[in-house]
Each structure stands twice: as structure tokens, then as C-alpha cells.
Nucleic acid binder design. Sequence first.
DNA 1: CATGAATGAGAGTTCATTCAT
DNA 2: TATGAATGAACTCTCATTCAT
Lengths: 195, 195, 195, 195
Amino acid sequence: MTIAMARPEALRSDAQRNRTALLDVARTFVDRGEPALLNAVAHEAGVGVGTAYRHFPSQQHLLEALAIDALEDMLDQVRDAVVLPDAADALRGVVTAAFRSMVDDAALGDLLTNGGFSCADTAALAGDLVVSVDALLARGRTEGIVRTDIDADDLRRLLCGLREAAVAGGTRVSDPERYVEILLAGLRPTNRPTP
Amino acid sequence: MTIAMARPEALRSDAQRNRTALLDVARTFVDRGEPALLNAVAHEAGVGVGTAYRHFPSQQHLLEALAIDALEDMLDQVRDAVVLPDAADALRGVVTAAFRSMVDDAALGDLLTNGGFSCADTAALAGDLVVSVDALLARGRTEGIVRTDIDADDLRRLLCGLREAAVAGGTRVSDPERYVEILLAGLRPTNRPTP
Amino acid sequence: MTIAMARPEALRSDAQRNRTALLDVARTFVDRGEPALLNAVAHEAGVGVGTAYRHFPSQQHLLEALAIDALEDMLDQVRDAVVLPDAADALRGVVTAAFRSMVDDAALGDLLTNGGFSCADTAALAGDLVVSVDALLARGRTEGIVRTDIDADDLRRLLCGLREAAVAGGTRVSDPERYVEILLAGLRPTNRPTP
Amino acid sequence: MTIAMARPEALRSDAQRNRTALLDVARTFVDRGEPALLNAVAHEAGVGVGTAYRHFPSQQHLLEALAIDALEDMLDQVRDAVVLPDAADALRGVVTAAFRSMVDDAALGDLLTNGGFSCADTAALAGDLVVSVDALLARGRTEGIVRTDIDADDLRRLLCGLREAAVAGGTRVSDPERYVEILLAGLRPTNRPTP
DNA sequence: CATGAATGAGAGTTCATTCAT
DNA sequence: TATGAATGAACTCTCATTCAT
């Protein structure tokens, strides 16, 4: 029994073709806000259900495969941000980018909201993300630019909640950037004006 | 065809008994985070399915019946707040109380999050709520204690998102009050310190 | 236990009022081609379901109550026809009138089509109708103006079928009278021209 | 979305086995005059409900699958009849055969009576049938052996009505052929004896 | 007698997952 | 390895009839 991977080893070329087709179709589903039912995705991709299940044992696996690149980008961004000269800029950059990604990519948003990773690689990525975000927050706390009672999981929750606020009910709010500003302002330590 | 009401006229005593039993059971479902399936609720309440459907034509009606009291309390609170001497206190009180209610009562939280009212009385209540919240925000804007780019629907969305943040995944975050503080701080006009 | 009657004895005035209201509403249902569900009829008549069931123990009883006058008219017409001077005119008159009644009155048409009387009086009426129609046909056979292999039940079936033909699918055929002409022509003995 | 077909492409052997089993059971239902409920048919065929729904998305589809062969036979017969030397023989043959088929095969009878085709192939067949029957009637009119006010839809209605007359109430009338003779005689132009 | 709440079997349908081909 | 047919539990909803009030 192999551990599931959202990003698999090298595949035979036909398998790779199927996998890509499935992901492409699944993407259209989540972009429309519809659940990526394996059967429906398989059918629309012109592939047997069994094949779909071989590649993605559950909807969750499919979701993680859809989101893993974005998750990795997010990790890179946080790691870059940790070493930025200005801590406030770093945090602002990370929060803004994360929010945008989650609003634009329902797969990523859903994944971070619901958790419960099924693939070893996405789970590991998520773990690394927590570590890096904690580092970022630690620095922010040290420099006094962020509340001291917030950890990485709080930030994840707040971002997921904010994304819900922005896209809930299938309608995207106008100018979602306002919501990031609100979060960023709210994250600063109390009684401390914007620099 | 009578228009559905979440809070019906006086009921015959047996009907009232069943209705209460259904609502009690439904409450345990939503409190556990489970969907209040009409059949399951009916069965557990020791009542025929048909009876459940007579009282609540759909899960949505059931949800609204579960939430209407809390919704009304919320409206009262907002109306009281509008005439409070201090606008900042008023807003803080409303946001705090609303957040607590939604976190404690999943029915209320789900209702405000998903919208789509089926009962005339809950829909009316929700409409009144928007009016009152807009009044509250207008006053806040006038007095310069709240961002000018936020309306009642934004506040609803933000509160629903914050509640998601606090209770998502079936686990309630520790000390949810922190999240309200974040939101309240974020709602203040930029570059303006807490008084 | 009383035997059911489509046309009951004298009723208390309030009972009579309810009965009439139920029948009036039921008539609108069958005229629209909808089944006269006891619950729906009762509700629309502003009467309790129990009351509806007291007056009409089943949809069938309701149907018979709706049709009994027309059935009686039909019987009168046949009895009158039997003693008419011209047998061909008599048959033509009966067939034409019966067809028209059944096309115009879905309750009557359905009753004669499905049989299975639940009320003693409608059943008796139907029995009398068979007797009279057989007399009419006997005379017709004697005078050589009608096929010899047709009895009253055949004629009922043929008329019901013809009505189905005319109104099937909720769409009434244009000029239904053509269909009566076809039946009348078909009923004449073979090889015998219209006089 | 594939368009439904009453007669599918080549099936995998297991699918073919199930399909046949379902159709066999469904046949017994309609022959008993009972509605072919998908669930009941599936159960009696020893097959999951889902399988029944895969093969036949609705009762209507099932009905059309049951009737398509007979419908095709009927079309062949009409097309053959159109080119027969004697127009009267042609019409007689078609009417007689159609009536027999509908009386013997409740699926066919119900299909033609209720219309509302769900499968592309049966709908096409029905359309072709109208065309061919109209051709047959046109020739009959030209040769003066059929009433001029009857078109293909009238003939369909009359045949469906006649079949109702013959089999209504679950009891089949004795010697149904008499009814065809009546219809055939009735279809001839008025005042014109049988040749 | 009137009322209308309650009943519950059953119809119709969907979908995640398995497994024969 | 790919295919797609099969599965059946689960769910929503209806309606004819009964019975407590």
C-alpha cells in the first residue's frame, strides 16, 4: 500500500494524459462552485470512473492535487517573507497574497478551510506552512507589529473566514481587498496606529 | 396556500407537543454540527415523517424556526444600540453580541450565512435587521468611528466569516473573543488609534 | 353502518353547506383535469379533512356525487329514446348526448370508464342504464339499424373509448362531433348504407 | 449529456444481462396492468435500484424500451401498406394490425396513448409513423375510401380510444375484432356502402 | 358533528465506492 | 492498467386515511 500523493512520481504517458484531463475538468467544476464529483469529472474527461478513482481515491485527493501548486507557492511566499527587512511589509504581503489566492482558487480555499489532508505531500506542505507562518508571526510579535495572542492556526482560520465572507453564497463581494485591510488593521496590537 | 411562518399561530396542544419535540431534537442535531434531516429528526422525536413535513416543509423552514427567537433578540439589540449615547459602544455591543450568538447557536449562524429565507417572518426580521444595522453604521460613519466603505451586508458577511473562523471544522477555537476584537479594531477608520 | 349514497337524505343545514362547498371545489378540480384529492378539496373548501371524509369516504364517492345528476339525466334520456318513433333517431340521439356529456363532464366520463361504484344509488342508476340501453339496442337490432353483436356494455366501452380519443392528453380534439359520426356509422350493420 | 435511446448500442455482457432482466420483469408488470415502478422492477429483477436508473432514467424510458420493437414493426407495416395495390385493403390491414398490437402489448398502447417521448429513437419512429400514416390516409381520401376529415393524429386517437374500450378496467372484451370492424366501417365516407 | 393533526408506507432519485470485464 | 456497470444506503417528499381534540 502506497501512501497517497497529490503530486505523483513519473507516470506512464497515457496515465499522465488521463490525470491531466481529470484535473482540467475538475478545475472547471470547482471554479463554477460545483462539487467535483468523481463520476461527473471522469465522464466529462472522457475517462472511466475507475480510472478517476485510481488517480484520486476520493474527492479530497482530487482537491489536494488541484491545490498543491498553489499551496507550494504560498509556502515559498511565506519563506521569502520571513527574511524580508520590514516585518510589517512581510506580514502584509503574505496575508494579501494568501487571501487573493484563496478567493481566486476555490480548491485552495476549501482545502485550507476544511483541513483533513489525505495526501502525504500536501499534509507536509501544510505543516511547513504552519512552521513558517509561526516564524513570521514570532518576528512580528517581537517587533510589536502584531497581536501577541495570534498563532499560525488563528491566522489560517481568520483568512479562511475572511474568504468565506468575500465569496459566500456564490456571490463575490465587490472589492474584496477592503476585507484584507480590515484583517490587517485588526491584527495590529491594540492602541497602536498604522505607522 | 398559506405563507410559511417560522413562528406559527396558536397550535392545538398535541401539535404543539410534536412541534416542540421536533425542534428539541433538531436543536441537538445542529448543535452537533449535523444537518437536521427531516426524517432523522422525525424518527428521533418519535413522530411520523409526515408530521415533521407538516410542521416544517423543508430543512430550511426547520432551521428558521430554530433561529427565529435569536434573530429577534439580535434585532432588538441592534435597535437598542442605535439610540445608545456612545456610537462606539453601540457598535462594539452589537458586534460582540451577534458574534457570540452565532458561535453559540449554529442554527442562527447557518441562517445568516446562507440566507435564502423560506418563512415570511424570518425574512422580514432579516430585512429589518439590515435597516437597523445600516442606521447603526451610518451613525458610526458620521462620528468617524467606523470605516466608510462598509455596509450592513459587509458586516453580516464579516461576522459570518469570523464565526466560520471560530468554529470551523467542528472545533471551536479557544477564546473566540479575540476574534471580535480583531474585527472591531479592523472596522475602525484607518490611521485612527483606539480612543 | 349505512350504505353510502351519492345523494344523501336531508342534511342539517350546516352539513348541507359543507357538502355543497366540497362539491363545488371538487368540480373545479376535475374540470381542470386534476385528481380531486380529499385533503386538497377540503382545504380549499375551508372545511376540515375529517368533514370531507364524513361526506365522501373516498375520492370515488366524491366522484359519484359529482356525476349522479348527469347519470340520471342520461338515464332519462335513454328511457325517453326507447319510446321514440324512429329507432335510428333514438340511437343517434342517445349516443350523441352521452358522448357530449362525457366529454364535457370529466367526472361522468371517469365514472363510466372506470366503473367500480361505491354508492348504492349510482350503482343502481348504472344498472338501470344498462337495462334501458339494452332495450334501445334490442329495438335497433330488430329494426336492422344496428349491429347485432353489440350490447349495452360494448356501447359503454365504445363511448368511453371515444371520449378518451377526444380528450386524451389534456388536449381536446377539434370538432369532437366527427368522432360520434364515426361511431354511429360504425355501429350500423355491415353492408348497409346510411338511409 | 448523451441523448437517451430506447435501444442502446452494444452493451457489455453483464449490462445486457441486467437490461434484459429488467425488461423481462417490467413486461410482466405492464402485462398485469401495473405501473412499472423502477424500484419494484429493480428489486424483482434482483438488481440494484441504481442499475435500473442507469438503464432507464425514468418509467417512461423503460416503457419506450419495452415498446420500441413493436413500434418499429408498426412503422414497417404502414410503409408496406402504403404501396399495396388496394387502398382499402391497405388501410384495413394497418388498422387491424395496429389495434391488435396495442391490445396485446400494453406498453405500446400506453406509449401511443400518452405520447411524451423521452428517447430520441422512439420519438423519431413516432414522427415517421405520422408521416407514413398521413400518406396512407391521403391515398385513401384520393380514392374515396376514407372520410376526408381524419388525419394521422385522429386515427391514432381513435385507435387508442378503441383499445381503451377493448381492455379498460383490466378486463378484455370478448372478440375485440368487432371493435375494429366498427372503426373501419365508421372511417368510410358517409353514405357509401362497403364495396 | 366538525376539525385538522398525525400517520407511515412508499415513490422517486442521487452518489460514493466497488468490482467484474 | 482502464473501463464503466453495479451497488444500495440515504434522502426528500406525497398522500390516503385515521383519530385525538
